[in-house]
Amino acid sequence: MSDDPIAKFHQWWEAVIRDVQPKHRGAMCLSTVADNGMPSARFVALKTADARGFLFCTWFNSRKGQELARHPHAALTFWWEEKGWQVRVEGVIAPVSAQESDAAWHDRSRDAQLTTVCFQQSQPLATEAELEVRLQQARQQYEGQPVPRPAQWGGLRVVPQSLEFLTFRDNRLHLREYFSRATPQSDWEKRLLQP
């Protein structure tokens, strides 16, 4: 077993990309908590994962952005059915630099950029037809020029306090490897959990 959970994550990630070639290769379930204590989960795209944590992007004034601002703890779940692998990450939220947010913005397709600038994520929408109308308006507005990153859109990082790697087995004798640390500067402690 690897003693470095980030290295182990990358080993699994690279194997999934190589062997499975998933359509949505960065898909991860992000769970947050509302003011009333209710959990909320949705899939977002992983941008990068390194020793600092797991980076994703969002509108800061979206539901998840507001929940994370008020309750800066989050959980991530990765599930790769073809491999029978699950990774769970729990940690605290840290903002990223404007440069990192800019890099993530420039990594997006132009259509993704246009969709981002013409909508306020999580806000009410009058009709479904408004989706195409607004996108067409944004295409016309930014024709022949770069699409600027909105100030309220950018990256957030889940700084992990724990990671769990679960290998599913048909006989239900699942292997669960659990890594935890007290602070981001602490060494990782590893233990096995019963299935």
Rank of each mutant, 00 (worst) to 15 (best):
M38I: 15
M38E: 14
M38F: 14
A41V: 05
A41Q: 02
R42C: 01
F43N: 06
F43L: 05
F43E: 01
F43S: 04
F43K: 06
F43P: 04
F43I: 02
V44N: 03
V44H: 00
A45S: 14
L46C: 03
L46P: 01
L46E: 00
T48L: 07
A49H: 00
A49I: 10
A49R: 08
A49G: 00
A49F: 01
A49Q: 00
D50K: 07
A51P: 08
R52I: 09
R52E: 12
G53W: 02
G53P: 07
L55Q: 10
L55F: 07
L55I: 10
L55D: 03
F56N: 03
F56T: 07
F56V: 03
F56E: 04
F56R: 05
C57A: 12
F60R: 03
F60Q: 12
F60D: 09
S62Q: 15
R63D: 15
R63V: 13
K64A: 07
K64Q: 02
G65N: 10
G65M: 11
Q66D: 13
Q66V: 13
Q66P: 01
E67G: 05
L68S: 06
L68G: 08
L68V: 04
A69P: 06
A69E: 14
R70L: 09
R70P: 07
R70C: 12
H71Y: 00
H71G: 08
H71V: 05
H71D: 01
P72G: 06
H73G: 02
H73I: 13
H73P: 00
A74S: 06
A74F: 02
L76H: 12
L76G: 08
T77V: 12
T77S: 09
T77N: 11
F78H: 14
F78A: 08
W79Y: 10
W79M: 04
W80V: 04
E81M: 10
E81T: 08
E81S: 07
K83T: 01
K83Y: 01
G84M: 05
G84S: 03
W85Q: 07
Q86E: 15
Q86D: 05
Q86H: 12
Q86N: 09
V87G: 00
V87L: 11
V87Y: 02
R88E: 05
V89T: 08
E90D: 12
E90M: 13
E90Y: 05
G91K: 03
G91E: 01
G91D: 07
V92C: 14
V92F: 12
V92M: 11
V92D: 11
V92Y: 09
V92S: 11
I93Y: 05
